[in-house]
Amino acid sequence: MEGSSLNLTLKIWRQKNAQDSGKFATYNVSDISTDMSFLEMIDVLNEQLITKGEEPVAFDHDCREGICGMCSMYINGRAHGPWNGTTTCQLHMRAFKNGETITIEPWRAGAFPVIKDLVVNRSAFDRIIAAGGFVSVNTGNAQDANALPIPKDDADASFAAAACIGCGACVASCKNSSAMLFVSAKVSQLALLPQGQPERIDRVLNMVKQMDEEGFGNCTNTGSCEAECPKEISLDNIARLNREYLFATLKK
């Protein structure tokens, strides 16, 4: 498809480091091809800034194909921008109009402190996984993979939950900065599989405990997380997490 080109105004959050209070800066970019990805547009801006002797905008990105979960950015009030089911790296400039002003902010959450500009620290997610998001099976302990048939529906539902890329869009878009969708995806993935059963109760208790300690907010079931999730992880998982947690509390 033949693209056209855009001139845009960018309002970008600039913050030198975690201690700095930060502020918005405004930049203009021109001749942006609609075939570019959003991050390629930022590349163009950065090249412009470096050539002018200014500091480029720091932002997280790596695979640029929508799977590593590293890219973030709150674009015009939306996590990963206006397209549903899409990460920022897969958002293309076709989504914007010529002359538009685009406001770009980092993920905002107490549990995701800003490191620099648009880069935030999401290690809270790693700590939640370390608290229980695994099956305790040492290397070499496994039986034959086909020894335990798993109903296709369960395997598919588990996969749908496991598709989470840990980008944090759920936290960023939730009005309460709640991490429930992230936690529920991992809890669901393992609760749906026979391999996850032995540690089912401890897993949910420990992961929720860690989630609370990290300072995320509480879920009020607004559904923004599901709407903004680039992998379209379902709210069903949150209901399942609630169920698992209630059940675990009654049992332990």
């Binding site: 290397t139 302990n141 993979a145 048939p149 798993i150 109903p151 296709k152 395997a155 496991a162 391999q195």
Partner: peptide
């Protein structure tokens, strides 16, 4: 072959047939 066993035991949700096998 051991890799597949190990991954399934970790809870990796591989694609399955209706009979429940990989």
């Amino acid at each position: 072959t051991s890799i597949i066993d190990q991954c399934v035991a970790q809870g990796v949700p591989f694609a399955r047939e209706y009979g429940g096998l990989l």
